[in-house]
């Protein structure tokens, strides 16, 4: 878990999105490794993680019910 620079060339016009909320990534992203080993890129740090955890719990409880 750490901030990473996007490190784009000045002529790069691609766009990057937060894997959690969809907001655009500006200049850097917060990287987090999921339990299954995949990396997610986020626009903010702990706040995004809390949000992601909450949505996952809701999905799980919806499946359980």
């Amino acid at each position: 878990m750490a901030w990473h620079e996007l490190n784009k060339n000045w002529h790069d016009t691609t766009v990057d999105y937060c894997d959690v909320c969809g907001n655009l990534l500006i200049a850097r992203y917060w990287s987090f490794i999921e339990p299954d080993g995949t990396e997610t890129r986020r626009c903010c740090d702990e706040t995004c993680e809390r949000l992601f955890g909450r949505l996952r719990r809701l999905e799980q409880s919806a499946r359980d019910s």
């Binding site: 909320c21 969809g22 907001n23 706040t47 949000l51």
Partner: peptide, 12 residues
Amino acid sequence: VKVVAPAGTITC
């Protein structure tokens, strides 16, 4: 307030 709008949907 958080807004979740996944990229590739009509909302993002």
